[in-house]
């Protein structure tokens, strides 16, 4: 358990250190969602229809951008060798890294969903639900993303490979997340999103750890 906490603290600190990893996806997400109304003009009906999907696409792409270096850096600097000798199973260590990523990037990004939703003409009572759904969606994205990041850790410029592996699995959270944001059948969509989040964060670390063991060879 010590190893879990130590890995979580370290990864969280590194993601925020020196204005590094965590700010770029957040800036991307805010920039993309706030620029949309400027580009599409002030037509409220159009924005309200196009807005929710755009929030989710921006969120998915923001997460995607952080995945490439997630394990690649550990492989290149020798940290991965140490993770394999850890007191805790590698699956738990990967879960700690995913949890740190969610806290450092997923949570701020979900909160940033509030101003984004306002910019896209969401009604005030929807904002809380949108933030909650983004938080769940981030967990699903990150759980799946761990696998893509682990599989492509040894590939130079593996970003394209990660996108190919991961994007198909981003589809369910995007579909149900957009449904939440559009206000259709919110309760059921939130439940399905929670299912996606739990499933991805339970299975993702298992698959990612298996891939990382191969990377060390």
């Amino acid at each position: 358990m010590n190893a879990f906490i130590a890995t979580f603290m370290r990864d969280f600190a590194l993601l925020w250190a020196g204005g590094g990893g965590a700010l770029a996806p957040l800036g991307f997400f805010l920039g993309a969602t706030v620029l949309v109304p400027l580009a599409m003009g002030p037509d409220r009906a159009l924005l309200a229809a196009a807005g929710p999907p755009l929030v989710w696409i921006a969120a998915a792409l923001a997460v995607l951008a952080t995945l490439e270096r997630l394990f690649q850096a550990d492989l290149e600097d020798g940290s991965l060798d140490q993770l394999l000798l850890s007191q805790s199973p590698l699956e738990l260590i990967v879960l700690a890294k995913g949890a740190a990523l969610w806290c450092a990037i997923g949570l701020p990004l979900a909160l940033a969903g509030a101003p984004a939703a306002i910019a896209l003409q969401a009604s005030p009572e929807q904002i809380g639900v949108i933030v909650a759904s983004l938080g769940l969606g981030m967990a699903a994205f990150i759980g799946v993303g761990l696998v893509g990041a682990a599989v492509s850790a040894g590939v130079k410029r593996g970003g394209v490979l990660i996108a190919l592996i991961v994007l198909p699995f981003f589809a369910p959270p995007i579909i149900f997340g957009s449904a939440v944001a559009a206000g259709e059948d919110v309760g059921a969509a939130l439940a399905i999103l929670a299912g996606c989040a739990l499933g991805a964060s339970a299975l993702g670390p298992l698959a990612a750890a298996a891939a990382l063991r191969l990377q060390a060879e």
Binding site: N2, A3, A13, L14, D77, S79, D81, Q82, Q87
Partner: peptide, 21 residues
């Protein structure tokens, strides 16, 4: 490879290894 992260302090490395290993 030494397994070091440029942004983390020397002390943070040792404390982290104590937890990890």
């Amino acid at each position: 490879l030494n397994g070091l992260k440029g942004a983390a302090s020397v002390r943070a490395h040792v404390r982290y290894w104590a937890g990890l290993l």
